[in-house]
Design a protein around this nucleic acid. Structure first.
Lengths: 339, 339
DNA sequence: GTAACCAATGCACACGTGTGCATACCATGC
DNA sequence: GCATGGTATGCACACGTGTGCATTGGTTAC
């Protein structure tokens, strides 16, 4: 039998209003009754019903978290940052895997709307940007992570890493090591991140006058198997590359794995650069040179932005907010070496 | 302005009761009004308020998920299984990181209680077992994953891998390869999994008459840095081991990393076996021989058990439930070789 | 024609909490 | 004495939904 404030009220011989006030430490209640009520609540094992409270206050202190898959180590670390910040501010997370399927993502948002979350954070979904108008129906702040969107509206903002900058950094690193034939394993073009990293790659090449070779631009899928396949394609070339910049670490790891099977030495025969700096990048063999995204920090920034937006909603103070762009950092390990 | 069933009722010229019934497709409403109401709801952008509904039905279709950290790849994959099964049954997850701190775990459970979740799943926390009586105050089914507890009560059950069996499997594999000096890197003894894996290790040694050498039993912490430290200790020995069974994959990966730095070949100089089969185990160098836990399946089983328990709660049909134990599987890759 | 029944709808209460307003009590000031 | 003011409490409504029961209108059976 669940105990409510009415039960406490009966036991304490006061009205439920007084109990409600006593438990929220209101100054409208005398110290003696406050103490008595609080003691009684403790003793009776009272647990406030957040549902009822939220119904009247119209706040749930809950944010929805939509991810493609929580099993992605990159996402998991971003979520870590989100969770920590949310927890510090008394907020709770509802987790939704979308599996990158549009209809599941839409359904998730609809569900979050039904649960009356105060805000939503969407990570790494290319869908987020495409269906943004659909998402906005939810009527609460939305923060997108690593998801380019032009028309950031009243309530939707983004936290992204500068993918172009990162792609440039990675490619420039290979160039400075003396490489001239540099391949790039990309990801499906509907991810703006893939486009931007490729752009940085091309810019870096252009800066030193290297003519881009289309045969060195190989499609991947952001997963290890994509990297494995890409290596096979590259090795079939007449003039294979001596350096490869991969869309992300998983691609790079798959590529290195396949290279080893093909009898190719990394970095001896080919240098490899990844992107993300997932936890395993430093435990690979060889330890992976990569562009580190500040993952935990990005999660934190996204959550803080959501908090600001939600505060605007209630307090109506128009502070200036803008999209956040963070810079990646080149981490040189052992998968790259001079040509 | 949010639209409620009352608004729809007004627009349709009926009472809110009729709207409520129409939207739940009740047979008590005529087909014409049902159609009219449903169309109107669609048009007005109605979203049912789950809070209000749960308040009266006393069901939230939500389960709390308490993990030590979502950034652990093993846990992330278990969560994947939980999420998929929950989603299939129309349930939603609330995510809580406990960071393995008891007070945070208790606070999380208290919060979940306030949110009136229908059940709770706790993964890999040694705290779960210790503070079980504290957790049970929540008054809803609790399922523990990889957490030994003797006194499974009316509402608390466990899904675990057979750690002793797995430890035995790993050690026997090394023995059959001809190894005699076999080390074990363990984890803090307050994890029952660590105890049981060690037990399997000792049993396997005993079966073939190998006297256990206490200097070959090295403490770790379940993380990569623990494995790195352990290797240093082992190499300081007069007679170093030729085979090592590590508490888990992360420990093994750290150990292999340190071995490489020390100029030791794996598996040439020392064979290494892990535990878990995290996604990266197959992409390590050398690819890691390990005991695979059916992670996604375990998550699925845990969620299914939670669903059964929650169904019991409402329908009161006493079906027999018992703790689930699954078996690990030896996956031989390239980190082990004959002595 | 009337009784009986069924289908469709509305009324009213409940779930548990927060809060504006009224009220009751008491102390202070003149 | 009374007016004033402050303090502590209760009343009553609201949040949005589900549901038992009563009610209404229409149809069927005799």
């Amino acid at each position: 039998m669940r105990v409510s404030i009415k039960d406490i009220a009966k036991a304490a011989g006061v009205s439920h209003s007084t109990v409600s006030r006593a438990l929220s430490d209101s100054s409208l209640v005398s110290d003696v009754t406050k103490a008595r009520v609080q003691h009684l609540a403790q003793e009776m094992g009272y647990s406030p019903n957040t549902l009822a409270r939220s119904l009247v206050t119209r706040q749930t202190y809950t944010v929805g978290l939509v991810v493609t898959t929580i099993a992605d180590p990159f996402i998991a670390e971003v979520v870590q940052g989100i969770e920590a910040t949310a927890h510090d501010h008394g907020y709770t997370l509802i987790l939704c895997n979308s599996g990158a399927e549009p209809e599941r993502e839409i359904a998730a948002v609809e569900m979050l709307r039904s649960k009356r979350v105060d805000g939503v954070i969407v990570t790494s979904s290319r869908i987020g940007a495409l269906y943004l108008h659909h998402l906005e129906r939810i009527g609460v702040p939305i923060v997108l992570i690593n998801n380019h969107n032009e028309q950031s509206g009243r309530y939707t903002f983004t936290v992204t890493v500068d993918n172009c900058h990162g792609g440039h950094l990675a490619t420039k690193h290979l160039i400075e090591l003396g490489h001239r034939r540099i391949a790039h394993i990309t990801a499906p073009a509907d991810r703006s991140s893939a486009q931007d990293r490729m752009l940085g790659y091309h810019q870096a090449l252009a800066e030193v006058g290297i003519e881009p070779d289309p045969t060195l631009l190989v499609p991947g899928n952001g997963r290890a198997d994509g990297g494995e396949k890409a290596l096979v394609d590259l090795m079939a070339l007449e003039a294979p590359p001596t350096g490869v910049f991969c869309y992300n670490d998983m691609t790079a790891i798959g590529l290195i794995h396949a290279a080893r099977r093909a009898g190719l030495a990394v970095p001896g025969d080919v240098s490899v650069v990844g992107f993300d700096d997932i936890p395993f990048a430093s435990y690979c063999y060889p330890p992976l040179t990569t562009i580190a995204q500040p993952k935990v920090e990005m999660g934190q920034l996204a959550m803080e932005m959501a908090l600001s937006l939600m505060a605007m909603d209630t307090q109506d103070n128009e502070q200036e907010l803008s999209n956040v762009v963070v810079l990646g950092r080149l981490v040189v390990r052992a998968s790259t070496v001079g040509a």
